[in-house]
C-alpha cells in the first residue's frame, strides 16, 4: 500500500475510534447538556445532474428523492463542543432524451463543531467531520461499463451558522451549514478498466486514490428553518450538494438541489443507574 495512503488510513481509523469512544462514553454521561439531543428527520425532493465519464461523456438530469436524519448534541467534556451525526440517502433517475440512468448514494457524516456565540442569538460552529459515502451510477444500456461504483471517505472542514429569532409568537431557528472535503480516499475504476478485470480477474491496481481539493473539490451546503406548528417543530430546508472528482482521467460530478421537509424532536436521555424498571406508564416493553 502507498505509504501516504497507509498514513491517511491510520489517521481516519484513529479519528473514527476516537469519535466512537467519545460517542460511546456520552451515553453514560451525567453532564446535563450532553443528555439533550436535537433529532431531525427530513424528506427531500429535488433535481440532480450527473456526469460520469466512465459511463459516458454526457450529463444527465432528473428527479431525486432523499431522506435525512440528523442528531446534534453537546459533548460531555466540553460545553462548547457539539457533535453532529448526519445520515442521508438519495435515489435519483436522471435522464437525457427519454433515456434514464439511475444513481444512489448513502452518506454518513459524523464529527464535532466548536461553538462560538457571536451574539445572544447567533452562533458560528466550526469543526470537522468524517464523511463516508457509498453509492452507484448505473446505465442499463452499457456493456462492460454498466455501472460506476461510488465509495469514498473524506475528512471535511465544516462550518455552521445558527440564528434564532422570533416571528410573532413563534420561536424560529435558521441554520446554514457547509461541509468541504479536505482529504480522503476514493475508489475509482481506472480509465478503461472493465468490471470483468477488476472483480472477476481481481486486478484492481490504481483503483484506490488519495483525494484532496485538487481532484475532489466538493461541497455540501444546507439551509434549514425550524418552526413550531401547534405542538410539533417542523424543519424546512434546502440541500445543495456538489460532488466532483477528477481521478484516473475520469471526470465525475453530481450536482444536487433538494428541498426538504420534516420534523424535529428534542430528546432528553437519561441513564438507569440502579437497574430499576421504567414506570409502566412510559415503558413501551
Amino acid at each position: 500500500m502507498n505509504p501516504m495512503l497507509s498514513r491517511l488510513a491510520a489517521v481516519v481509523a484513529l479519528s473514527c475510534a476516537y469519535i466512537y469512544m467519545v460517542y460511546g462514553q456520552s451515553l453514560d454521561t451525567d453532564t446535563v447538556p450532553s443528555r439533550y439531543r436535537v433529532v431531525a428527520t427530513t424528506f427531500g425532493a429535488g433535481r440532480q445532474k450527473v456526469l460520469d465519464t466512465y459511463l459516458t461523456p454526457l450529463q444527465y438530469a432528473g428527479p431525486e428523492v432523499s431522506v435525512a436524519r440528523e442528531t446534534m448534541r453537546f459533548t460531555r467534556f466540553n460545553k462548547d463542543l457539539s457533535v453532529q451525526n448526519f445520515f442521508r440517502i438519495y435515489a435519483a433517475m436522471p435522464g437525457k432524451n427519454g433515456y434514464d440512468i439511475y444513481s444512489g448514494l448513502v452518506n454518513w457524516n459524523y464529527g464535532m463543531h466548536y461553538q462560538f456565540q457571536l451574539r445572544y442569538n447567533l452562533k458560528l460552529l466550526v469543526g470537522g467531520l468524517g464523511d463516508l459515502n457509498a453509492g452507484f451510477v448505473y446505465n442499463p444500456r452499457n456493456s462492460n461499463n454498466p455501472a460506476s461504483a461510488k465509495a469514498f471517505v473524506d475528512l471535511d472542514a465544516s462550518a455552521m451558522l445558527i440564528y434564532r429569532f422570533k416571528l410573532g409568537r413563534c420561536h424560529l431557528t435558521a441554520r446554514y451549514q457547509a461541509n468541504l472535503p479536505v482529504m480522503g480516499v476514493m475508489f475509482s475504476p481506472d480509465y478503461g478498466s472493465s468490471y470483468y478485470e477488476m472483480f472477476y480477474l481481481g486486478y484492481r491496481d490504481n483503483t484506490v486514490k488519495f483525494t484532496s481539493l485538487h481532484n475532489h473539490l466538493s461541497l455540501r451546503q444546507m439551509v434549514t428553518l425550524d418552526f413550531p406548528c401547534r405542538r410539533v417543530t417542523f424543519r424546512a430546508g434546502y440541500y445543495w450538494e456538489i460532488q466532483q472528482s477528477h481521478v484516473n482521467n475520469l471526470k465525475t460530478h453530481t450536482y444536487s438541489h433538494s428541498f426538504m421537509l420534516g420534523f424535529v424532536r428534542n430528546l432528553r436521555l437519561f441513564r438507569d443507574k440502579h437497574g430499576r424498571q421504567l414506570p409502566s406508564g412510559v415503558n413501551p416493553f
Binding site: P57, K96, R141
Partner: peptide, 14 residues
C-alpha cells in the same frame, strides 16, 4: 472488451 457510451441524440456507441 467492449465499452459503451451515448450520444446527444440518444444513439449509443459500443
Amino acid at each position: 472488451l467492449p465499452f459503451s457510451a451515448e450520444l446527444l441524440n440518444s444513439w449509443s456507441v459500443r
